[in-house]
Design a protein around this nucleic acid. Structure first.
Lengths: 340, 340
DNA sequence: TTGAAAGCGCTAACAT
DNA sequence: ATGTTAGCGCTTTCAA
């Protein structure tokens, strides 16, 4: 039993294909009740389902968007996808999901393929290493939104955390609690990810601003997997840090892993804050002080911007960058410094 | 500057569309080097990208599969998606992601739409409430794989945890540690989710098998959000439980939340085990004993089965159910009962 | 109020 | 070794 097409419905209902098409698209302006009934009946009879691929081909739009993530195994990404899906689901769009793993090559392939599949737009966590491709899309006014990171010289819409604020909020909290030796820990130094760069830069700015002595030994950067070991070195320093700021969830988890292994007492030995959303931060013991992102709003804004661009493809829209304000959520992992 | 089509390439290269099509599909058997060069050049010149929607229409396949999850905000789902994506990415397939939120209505709409988009197959975490639709797909031999749960009377492939083993492993561990009053906590009693049903049933079986007195007050079921309160009641019992088994991640998190609020001492006041993957189970304090699922293998198996069905659509393939063995990972949250 | 016909961009059978 | 042609299933313009 082959799948039936609009032609089959037309035959059975004894009308033309175009009339059926009208019916399918709810254009009843001129349709007689009787025809309507007959078509309705034929559709039921044949179990007919319109073929959206054919429609897409004709209409040159797919009602599908692509999302290229760095990794889905990341709380922030998960929540962003969720909010994007909620937004687009209401508007009849579907989402194709791809993981770039922060591999520029994979990112490129995915973007090319998604466009070949005629997605109407893209939301990308950019690796930052495919500038020609990003620029190419902008040149053809193909709707692209960056989220979480941006790319220098590429004027696409970007949804970002106000990283400066985030770092300052954490640093201020530390300073107010009498911490002077504050370490910062980050991953993926090999990639040009603006988020990482901005957070590290802000750390240095904050050090100055709060009149703390700068010590580059307190800046720890390494690829995931190597981070624990490097964090360990912090505690062999003459004067080890009393506070530590993790740049994101992945770094934080490695730090916490180390802490668990060597049984450091948080917050008495070390105060801890992480930027980013940490899964279950509130029910850790101690619960984790975080500088959290308004994830849902960020995802929604990305979706909204993209949708707007898709719906107004002919118009030129200036690209915009949105910086969302983080929120310091003080929990148990950060406390007064009792060491000095 | 309009997008160019295969016809534009053909014109520019002064060959026919079919030749270009041959080129695109790497069928060089009979192609002269010169034509090849010319086509190659024209493609570069025009920045040509094939339109996969058109190809899909013609070939009646989309190289896209749909995944209908209950929720992406669930560690198990996240990891399953990840492994499915890894599998299909290597084979040139893309994945459309949808969240049903365990709402049968949403599930139905998604499945219908995904099929209208001509996905080649589906992987579904079934709500269990759209049997007619599941059966309809099976009747037309449309490739569908169930994962995490199955649906009674519906003979689709299913990838499941061996829930009996999972519950018995946890119960055995409790019993060996001298626990007699063992509670079980689960969510979503309103839905016919086989996973929940099997785990609860196995609990009762285990109680018998281990010769423990059965007490239905130790079985706590409620919708998420109401669970904490009901768990609280356990500790107002004459003889409260010394051990507790959470049926899945979501239940577990509510339990842990409660424990955190009332400051129960785990494992001294209460030993705790959760079935399912808990994000960061290993770095909680205390770290959490879990009965973990071989998630990656399960996702991969689902992908593999689906791929196999897609590639052999004409053949009839008997449906199979795969039960994967869980693994008890003993961590700090479960210990000897010192209360009796 | 409905129908005929063209065309979206591609593939594939067949012809040359 | 390459070209011609029909057709995938739909929408849309124009005609009736």
């Amino acid at each position: 039993m082959k799948k039936s097409s609009i032609a089959d419905v037309a035959n059975l209902a004894k009308v033309s294909k175009s009339t059926v098409s009208q019916y399918l698209n709810n254009r009843f302006n001129y349709m007689s009740d009787e025809t309507k009934q007959r078509i309705e009946h034929a559709i039921k009879e044949l179990n007919y389902q319109p073929n959206i691929v054919a429609r897409s081909l004709k209409q040159k739009k797919s009602s599908t968007i692509g999302v290229v993530l760095s990794s889905i195994l990341h709380t922030f990404s998960t929540k962003v996808i969720r909010s994007i899906e909620d937004y687009f689901q209401e508007r009849g769009f579907h989402i194709i999901l791809c993981n770039s793993d922060d591999d520029p090559e994979k990112e490129r392939n995915y973007i090319v393929m998604l466009r070949a599949k005629q997605v109407d737009g893209l939301i990308v966590f950019p690796t930052g290493h495919n500038k020609d491709l990003y620029q190419f899309m902008l040149n053809e006014a193909f709707p692209v939104i960056f989220i979480d990171r941006t790319v220098s010289d590429i004027h696409a819409d970007a949804i970002l955390l106000d990283n400066e604020k985030a770092v300052f909020a954490a640093m201020k909290h530390f300073v107010e609690n009498n911490h002077k030796r504050i370490a910062i820990v980050g991953n993926a130094p090999s990639l040009n990810i603006t988020t990482r760069q901005e957070r590290l830069q802000s750390y240095q700015n904050a050090i100055k601003q709060f009149n703390l002595p700068f010590d580059k030994e307190l800046i720890v950067e390494a690829e995931l997997g190597l981070l624990s070991k490097k964090v360990g070195k912090l505690f062999t320093l003459q004067s080890p840090p009393t506070a530590l700021l993790a740049i994101n969830e992945l770094s934080f988890l490695e730090v916490l892993h180390y802490i668990k292994v060597v049984k450091l007492d948080v917050p008495n030995d070390l105060s801890l804050i992480s930027i980013d959303d940490i899964a279950n931060a509130d029910i850790f013991t101690p619960s984790i002080t975080t500088v959290s992102q308004p994830v849902y709003e960020m995802g929604e804004k990305a979706a909204e911007l993209l949708y707007h661009r898709i719906m107004n493809k002919e118009k030129h829209i200036e690209s915009q960058t949105f910086r969302f304000s983080p929120r310091l959520i003080i929990r148990e992992s950060s406390a007064k410094n009792r060491k000095s």
